[in-house]
C-alpha cells in the first residue's frame, strides 16, 4: 500500500513538474524520463535478475533505428514506435539465446561484442542507416494522437505517460511470482533450479522484457527529440543505464529514475562549474561505490525503509 502511494506520488510530482519547471529543466526532465525507461529495462536485467550486460546500447539503438528508418520511409510515429519496441525485444531475444549460455564476466564481454558488431554494422550500412552522422526526423512527422511532439508540453506529456506505464509495469512485474523467480536467479541460481525453475528461460524472459524497455526508450528518444544516429549505439550508451541503476539503487523500482535524474543534473552542473566534467563524474562514481554501494535507494532500504519497493 505504501509502495502504491509512493509510486503514484512520484508520478504526480513528475506531472506537476511538467507545469512548474523552467524551460531548460523542463526539457532536461523529458530526456531524463525517457532515459529512465531505458534504465528500468536495464534494472530488470541487472538489478533484479543479476545479469550484468554491457551491450544494452544495442537494444536501445535498434529501437531507435527501427523507428527512425520506418518514419523516414513514411510510417506514422505510432506504428514506428511499436516497431522500435519490437526491435528491442527481438534483438534481446536473439542475443540472449546465445549470451545466456555464458555467465559473469563472459556474459559481459559477449554482450559487449554483440553491441560492438551491431554498431559497426550501422556504420557499414551507412547508406541505409545514416551511419555515424545519423539523420533528423522531420518535424511534421513527429505527431502522436494529434499531439505535436516538437512542442515542449506534449513532449513532456508523452515522455511521462511512457515512463508511468513502464514504471508501473516494472512494479507489477517484480511483485509478481515471476518477479520473485527473477530475484531468485540473482540470489541463488542453483537453489531456484532445484525449486523447479528453469534458469535459462527465466533469464531469457527477463532479457527480452529488458530489451523491450530499451527498444521503446530508444524509439521514443528519436521521435521526441528528432534525431536518430549510430552514436547512440556506442559502448557509452551501454554504460550509462548501468550507472543510472547503480546510482539510484539496483533492484529498486524508483532507482532508475533517481539515477538518471541525478546523473543528468550532475553532468550539467559539472560542465557549468569546471572544465573537467569527466573528473567530476569519476569522483562521484568512486564516492558512490565506497560510501553507498547499494545506490541511494538501496542504502535507504537497508537503513530502515524496508518497505521501499
Amino acid at each position: 500500500m505504501k509502495a502504491l502511494v509512493l509510486h503514484l506520488a512520484v508520478l504526480a510530482a513528475l506531472a506537476a513538474m511538467g507545469f512548474l519547471l523552467p524551460p531548460y529543466h523542463h526539457g532536461m526532465m523529458a530526456r531524463v524520463l525517457v532515459m529512465a525507461v531505458f534504465a528500468i529495462g536495464y534494472n530488470i536485467a541487472f538489478g533484479y535478475t543479476g545479469l550484468l550486460s554491457l551491450g544494452h546500447a544495442l537494444h536501445f539503438c535498434a529501437g531507435m533505428m527501427a523507428c527512425g528508418i520506418a518514419m523516414r520511409e513514411g510510417v506514422a510515429a505510432g506504428p514506428a514506435l511499436l516497431l522500435g519496441l519490437a526491435a528491442g525485444g527481438v534483438t534481446a531475444l536473439a542475443t540472449g539465446l546465445l549470451a545466456l549460455r555464458t555467465a559473469g564476466v563472459s556474459f559481459m564481454i559477449v554482450t559487449l561484442m554483440f553491441a560492438q558488431a551491431f554498431h559497426l554494422a550501422l556504420l557499414y550500412y551507412g547508406g541505409f542507416t545514416g551511419g555515424d552522422e545519423g539523420f533528423p526526423l522531420p518535424g511534421a512527422a513527429r505527431r502522436l494522437f494529434g499531439l505535436d511532439l516538437t512542442q515542449a508540453g506534449p513532449r513532456y506529456a508523452v515522455a511521462l505517460v511512457l515512463f508511468g506505464l513502464v514504471l508501473l509495469a516494472q512494479w507489477g512485474l517484480v511483485s509478481s511470482r515471476f518477479g520473485r523467480s527473477l530475484i531468485a536467479m540473482r540470489e541463488n541460481e542453483e537453489r531456484s533450479r532445484m525449486l523447479g525453475y528453469n534458469p535459462f528461460t527465466t533469464k531469457l524472459a527477463a532479457l527480452v522484457i529488458s530489451g523491450l524497455c530499451a527498444g521503446i526508450a530508444g524509439a521514443a528518444y528519436g521521435v521526441l527529440f528528432g534525431y536518430v544516429g549510430a552514436s547512440f549505439g556506442t559502448t557509452q550508451y551501454s554504460i550509462l543505464p548501468m550507472l543510472y541503476v547503480l546510482l539510484g539503487g539496483a533492484g529498486t523500482t524508483l532507482g532508475p529514475l533517481l539515477g538518471a535524474g541525478l546523473m543528468a543534473w550532475l553532468i550539467d552542473a559539472a560542465s557549468g562549474l569546471t572544465d573537467s566534467p569527466l573528473a567530476v563524474i569519476g569522483v562521484t562514481l568512486i564516492g558512490l561505490v565506497v560510501f553507498a554501494p547499494r545506490g541511494i535507494l538501496g542504502t535507504l532500504r537497508q537503513r530502515g525503509l524496508k518497505w521501499l519497493p
Binding site: G139, G226, G229, S231
Partner: peptide, 14 residues
C-alpha cells in the same frame, strides 16, 4: 563534427 550538427539542428529549429 557532423553528427553533433545533425543531432543538434532539430532542437535549434524547434
Amino acid at each position: 563534427f557532423s553528427h553533433v550538427v545533425i543531432g543538434s539542428a532539430p532542437r535549434a529549429g524547434e
